[in-house]
Design a protein around this nucleic acid. Sequence first.
DNA 1: CGACGATTTGAATAGGATCAATGGGAGTGG
DNA 2: CCACTCCCATTGATCCTATTCAAATCGTCG
Lengths: 232, 232
Amino acid sequence: MRQEDAPLVRTLPLFAGASETTVEKLLQASFLQRFPAQVELISEDQPADFFYVVLEGCIELFANAGPKQSTAAIVRPVSSFAAAAVLRDGNYLLSARTLEPSRVLMIPGESVRAAFAGDAAFAKAFALELAAAYRRTMKALNNQKLRTAIERLANYLLQEHQTQGAAGNLTLPTEKQTLASLLGMTSENLSRSFGALAAHGVKVTGREIQLSDITSLETIAKPTPLIDDPMY
Amino acid sequence: MRQEDAPLVRTLPLFAGASETTVEKLLQASFLQRFPAQVELISEDQPADFFYVVLEGCIELFANAGPKQSTAAIVRPVSSFAAAAVLRDGNYLLSARTLEPSRVLMIPGESVRAAFAGDAAFAKAFALELAAAYRRTMKALNNQKLRTAIERLANYLLQEHQTQGAAGNLTLPTEKQTLASLLGMTSENLSRSFGALAAHGVKVTGREIQLSDITSLETIAKPTPLIDDPMY
DNA sequence: CGACGATTTGAATAGGATCAATGGGAGTGG
DNA sequence: CCACTCCCATTGATCCTATTCAAATCGTCG
């Protein structure tokens, strides 16, 4: 990777407590790559050669089964993916594509495992990241199994509203297609779910959403910190 | 914990490479408990005080949302749960109850984190366990989002058939209620799904299942190693 | 302007859930 | 040992949710 990027990368939470040598070794073997939108970075079922850290842009993780496709997560800076696959030296369970032009740090799995074994601070940071991702996935599973499509959408809107400053409006960060897949429904159904939420103060104009009755929306959504609080 | 249990516990894969001192410290602070069936060991949303290792019996992990309930996983010996919650020193995302009389090793979260920080071999084993659980959960999410109820049941049967020796028959390891919840459906719907699979050689007698046409069942199930292979 | 992909809308269908009632064992107590 | 009871499981009927297929509309980009 290029010299001028080193400072940025060193500030990553993942490298917070790691020793100088560890970071040095990791970065030396890594690639800091720029990708345009709609590039497939990894394909499910392939050997997990790299651990990925998203520095800029936006990556969609998704799975295929025959003709169907499901978005498992959307990764934004600064966050990572493929931790479990790399640590276990297994195969990717998900494919990944850029949704926007992105900058991505690619660290060889071999290097990650070596750093994990040799640097306790890095091991801790890496495992904490892994555990956080695990918990997000568990929440996604509960979300999917315990809620209807409208409830999932309502909770998504409330969460995004919170993230974006709770100003009574928000902007969808992805195409509605992608959002639908993330929320486990078809895009037609997402459209209808938005329609149903109009009665609860949700006004949709393209990707711009206005929430004029949060209370009513919360009544529908029945949010619970166990599923919806990103900090949990 | 009692002296006579120490040898058994020391053979756990989790402690495989760990130093004598690490294991010593962990076990000293731990409890090896026996529980009857239908005891709730942990309740979601509570501080994650203990990491659990199931030595005998069977534990159900589940989540509640209002009146609904969903089984996230069923843990059998020798395996563990609450790794992520304990490592992050957070709260449990799931409740846990014994389905059968069980023996469980309870290791204080504090001790786990100390051992993780102090013993690289233990850290590695623990993180590998965590990563494995993560991947199981991701597969469960894909299973839920990409498949119909009948497909999930068909794949479950094929997998269990494999696990139990591929002899053309298998025994359901839990009540059908629990299985239904694990597979993300109501028990009525499970019953009907079994009915639908009769046309594909699935004969149900209580908990005993006979599979007389694996090929036909696979046609329905469309299994894929990415979701169904436990080794992946 | 024209073309293409994304989104919306409509109609029909399928997949699951709910509600209600019935059948079937396993365990308990006489 | 048998009858009773309770809980689990099944079955039927109906309702609701969500998908599918088709067509129309909207936006964006060249």
